Measured scan of single mutants.
Amino acid sequence: GSLMYASIFGNVSAIIQRLYSGTARYHTQMLRVREFIRFHQIPNPLRQRLEEYFQHAWSYTNGIDMNAVLKGFPECLQADICLHLNRSLLQHCKPFRGATKGCLRALAMKFKTTHAPPGDTLVHAGDLLTALYFISRGSIEILRGDVVVAILGKNDIFGEPLNLYARPGKSNGDVRALTYCDLHKIHRDDLLEVLDMYPEFSDHFWSSLEITFNLRDTNMIPGSPGSTELEGGFSRQRKRKLSFRRRTDKDTEQPGEVSALGPGRAGAGPSSRGRPGGPWGESPSSGPSSPESSEDEGPGRSSSPLRLVPFSSPRPPGEPPGGEPLMEDCEKSSDTCNPLSGAFSGVSNIFSFWGDSRGRQYQELPRCPAPTPSLLNIPLSSPGRRPRGDVESRLDALQRQLNRLETRLSADMATVLQLLQRQMTLVPPAYSAVTTPGPGPTSTSPLLPVSPLPTLTLDSLSQVSQFMACEELPPGAPELPQEGPTRRLSLPGQLGALTSQPLHRHGSDPGS
Rank of each mutant, 00 (worst) to 15 (best):
R404A: 06
P428N: 09
A497N: 09
P320Y: 15
A177L: 02
E231N: 13
P478Q: 06
A414E: 11
R238N: 08
P291C: 08
S312W: 03
S171N: 01
R386P: 08
T407H: 09
L380G: 11
L456G: 10
Q463P: 13
E406H: 04
Q363W: 06
H504Y: 11
A166G: 12
T415L: 07
D249C: 11
Q401I: 05
T455E: 10
L132E: 01
Q463W: 04
S272H: 13
S382I: 15
S208H: 13
S243P: 08
Y198Q: 03
V175Y: 03
P161V: 03
Q423D: 06
Y133S: 03
P199G: 05
G138T: 03
L326M: 01
T179P: 02
L405V: 15
A430D: 07
T248I: 12
E229P: 13
H204S: 14
L473E: 13
A414Y: 04
G138N: 01
G359H: 14
Y180L: 05
G359M: 10
Q466A: 08
S462F: 10
P387M: 11
P225I: 10
P437M: 11
C368D: 12
G298N: 03
D190T: 03
S271E: 10
Q237A: 13
R167Y: 08
A166M: 13
T372M: 09
G493I: 09
L448G: 09
L402V: 07
P383F: 10
E406Q: 08
S374D: 04
Q421S: 08
S293Y: 15
L308G: 12
N155P: 03
N155A: 04
V149N: 01
R367Q: 08
A411C: 05
V149F: 06
S272M: 10
S341V: 08
L480F: 12
V450C: 06
G355V: 09
D335M: 13
D251E: 08
T457E: 12
S357C: 13
T455D: 06
Q501H: 05
Y180M: 05
L209D: 01
S374G: 11
K185L: 09
W206S: 04
P387Q: 04
P288G: 13
F234V: 09
R265T: 14
S304R: 14
H204I: 08
F134C: 01
S341R: 10
T248C: 10
I135Y: 01
P481S: 07
T455S: 12
R422T: 10
D509G: 08
P510D: 04
I378L: 06
L183Y: 10
S171Q: 01
C337G: 10
E331M: 05
P270Q: 15
F311T: 10
P263L: 10
Q463I: 07
A433S: 09
S352V: 02
R386L: 13
A414C: 08
F213S: 02
I378T: 13
V427K: 08
R188W: 09
P317S: 11
P291F: 15
S243W: 10
L326K: 15
D296A: 12
R238A: 11
N403Y: 08
R307Y: 10
P263I: 13
L395R: 05
L191S: 01
P369G: 06
V450W: 11
S136Q: 08
R367M: 10
L183M: 08
L503E: 13
K185A: 13
E141I: 05
V347Y: 09
L132W: 01
G287A: 13
S341L: 05
L458M: 11
L461N: 05
Q501E: 14
E193P: 03
S171H: 01
T248S: 12
T436K: 13
A370P: 07
S227N: 12
G346E: 08
W206E: 03
P270E: 06
E231G: 06
V464M: 15
D296M: 11
V258G: 11
E253I: 12
P371G: 10
Q237H: 12
S445I: 11
L326R: 10
R394D: 03
R388Q: 04
M220P: 10
L419Y: 09
V391A: 15
A177V: 08
I157E: 03
P270C: 09
G232A: 11
G281Q: 14
D196P: 02
R394N: 08
P316M: 07
P291L: 10
G359K: 07
S202Y: 09
T444K: 14
P168L: 04
K154N: 08
P199E: 06
G138P: 02
P305W: 15
E479F: 02
S293W: 12
S139R: 11
S289C: 10
C337Q: 15
M220A: 08
G153H: 08
N349W: 01
V147M: 12
D459R: 11
P441D: 08
G264D: 09
D459Q: 13
S293G: 07
I186N: 01
T499L: 05
T436H: 06
G493H: 11
F467S: 04
T436D: 08
W206Y: 12
Y180N: 08
N163R: 07
F213C: 08
K250I: 09
S243H: 11
E141K: 06
R400G: 10
E253Y: 07
P316T: 13
P321W: 12
L195M: 08
A131Y: 09
P474G: 10
F311R: 14
P439W: 09
E160P: 02
Q399F: 05
P291V: 05
F134A: 02
V258L: 10
V175S: 01
Q463G: 11
I350M: 06
N338S: 09
E160T: 02
E324N: 15
K241N: 07
S224R: 09
N155Y: 12
Y431W: 10
R188K: 05
G438E: 05
F234G: 12
Y362M: 08
N338I: 12
A260E: 14
Y431F: 13
T228S: 06
L143E: 04
S462Q: 11
L420S: 04
G496K: 13
Q421C: 04
F351L: 10
S382F: 08
S443D: 14
L409M: 09
P510R: 10
P510T: 07
G322A: 14
A260Q: 09
G169T: 01
P168M: 05
I157A: 12
F344Y: 04
R216Q: 03
I350L: 12
R386D: 11
S139A: 06
V149R: 03
D156H: 06
S202R: 10
T252M: 07
S272C: 01
S460T: 08
A370L: 09
A266S: 10
R360F: 14
I157F: 04
R367F: 12
N349H: 06
G359F: 14
V147P: 02
G256N: 10
T444H: 14
Q466E: 04
Y198R: 02
R273D: 15
S451W: 14
E231I: 13
E229W: 13
F467Y: 13
L395F: 11
R238L: 11
D189R: 07
T130V: 09
P225F: 11
S207Q: 15
R176D: 01
P310S: 15
E210T: 10
T425M: 11
R307K: 12
L191A: 01
T179M: 03
S227M: 10
S334H: 11
D459Y: 05
S462L: 11
D509R: 08
K250V: 11
G496L: 03
G269F: 05
S171V: 01
Q466N: 05
N172Q: 09
G262N: 09
Q363R: 10
S302L: 06
M327F: 04
G223F: 11
R176Q: 04
P320E: 10
T499C: 15
D296L: 07
N163Y: 09
G264F: 04
L195A: 03
T442S: 14
E297P: 05
N377G: 14
R408W: 04
E210V: 09
L242C: 12
S410M: 09
G323Y: 01
V148C: 08
S357Y: 15
S465W: 04
S171D: 01
L326F: 09
P475W: 14
P288R: 10
L215W: 03
K241M: 10
S500I: 12
I142P: 01
A469R: 11
A397I: 10
S271N: 07
P373D: 10
M197C: 08
F158Q: 02
P429Q: 06
K241E: 11
P199V: 03
R301H: 13
L129R: 02
N377R: 14
L129V: 09
S283T: 15
K250D: 13
S290M: 13
S286G: 14
P510E: 10
T407Q: 08
